[in-house]
């Protein structure tokens, strides 16, 4: 059984301008010890999906199910969900200061977190554990730095301290929402390695949310590609990179300035993402899709298996088996289609 199974999640926000349909029927699951990558442009609903299942979206209308270790998080009482947060599910965000309080010492904050979920543990033992955690995430001289305030840490150290906090109670699941987006390459590499090591050591499952396909390539076992609040394509990592079906996935890959090319023109996706208040008809990607057909404007496709592989699904009217998909690519992108 999957550790977390989200089924048909819908999240809407009533606003002055109308209903924002942030998440429109999203399903995904994560197994123990595995990493699920969620990728998509900003505003595609990545953060809202995960924050909603952890009870962190206020004023939203929510539908669907989210089974965690067999229990539906969306039906849980507030108190119960609060207990799960931190203890069973750790969360890290793009901005470390959203979880680190600026006025309290880093070490004290970790100790408090540990003691809030485990009354039996002594202050001293909790403090030792805090030092150990900081060492684990690569803070130099953790026995001394445990007494620092967040502003005395560099950006990368704060990010690592937040990971230490998220991992303090050995959660079964870690939700990492753009954990390295604000970081430099070398610090990003350190942070991803820390997450990978903790995962190996404790068998933690990870949801890695990012718009960076490089980070997905490095960390994910399975990938969900989101656009305008829905899943466009879902598959194992290599299928997403080398055998994708959905035109949006293809468009993302083609937009990247790959290493080794010599100043050729890039192939952007035209246009811009739609307003989530007045969504286009049919397939939500159709105004930007180079393959658009009449049917796409009228009917919204559902996720269907590609080549009968149940673990690889795509929501698109292009043929799901046989040579039809590849032929379409050659028509649209010409020679360049065979990469």
């Amino acid at each position: 059984m999957a550790l977390l199974e989200v089924k048909n999640l819908k999240v809407t926000f009533p606003t002055d301008d109308g209903l924002v349909q942030a998440v429109r029927g999203v399903s995904f699951s994560v197994d123990r010890g595995k990493t699920l990558g969620i990728v998509g442009e900003s505003g595609s609903g990545k953060s809202v999906s995960t924050q909603t299942i952890m009870g962190l979206t206020r004023g939203a209308q929510v539908e669907g199910e989210a089974f965690f270790q067999g229990e539906d998080l969306l039906k849980m009482a507030r108190r119960q969900l609060q207990a799960i947060r931190g203890r069973d599910v750790g969360m890290i965000f793009q901005d470390p200061l959203s979880s680190l309080h600026p006025y309290y010492r880093v070490g004290w904050q970790i100790v408090e977190l540990i003691r809030a979920h485990d009354r039996a543990i002594s202050k001293k033992a909790a403090r030792q554990r805090a030092v150990e955690l900081l060492r684990l995430v690569g803070i130099p001289r953790p026995d001394v730095r445990v007494n620092d305030y967040p502003h005395q840490f560099s950006g990368g150290m704060r990010q690592r301290a937040m990971i230490a906090m998220a991992m303090a109670l050995n959660p079964a699941l870690l939700i990492a929402d753009e954990p390295t987006t604000a970081l430099d390459v070398t610090v990003q590499a350190q942070v991803l390695r820390v997450i990978g090591r903790l995962q190996e050591e404790f068998g933690t499952a990870v949801i890695m949310i990012t718009h960076d396909l490089g980070v997905i390539a490095e960390t994910a076992d399975d990938v969900v590609v989101m656009y305008a609040g829905a899943v466009m394509e879902a598959a194992d990592r290599d299928s997403i990179f080398y055998d994708h079906h959905h035109p949006y996935t293809e468009g993302l890959m083609r937009s990247l300035p790959a290493y080794g090319d010599d100043r050729q023109r890039l192939t952007p996706i035209g246009g811009t993402p739609p307003s989530l208040i007045t969504l286009p008809s049919g397939c939500k990607f159709h105004p930007r899709c180079p393959y658009v057909m009449d049917r796409c404007r009228a009917e919204e496709p559902e996720l269907e298996p590609v080549e009968q592989r149940y673990w690889h699904t795509s929501a698109c009217w292009l043929p799901h088996s046989g040579p039809g998909r590849q032929e379409a690519s050659e028509r649209v992108y010409g020679e360049a289609a065979t990469r």
Partner: peptide, 27 residues
């Protein structure tokens, strides 16, 4: 050399082959 080796590339096969150099410490 270290910087180039640390950039995550959108190519899992290449990433598996590559030797990454992770620099210790901060700037």
């Amino acid at each position: 050399g270290a910087l180039l080796s640390a950039v995550p590339l959108p190519d899992p096969k290449m990433m598996r082959q590559r030797q990454r150099v992770i620099l210790a410490g901060d700037i």
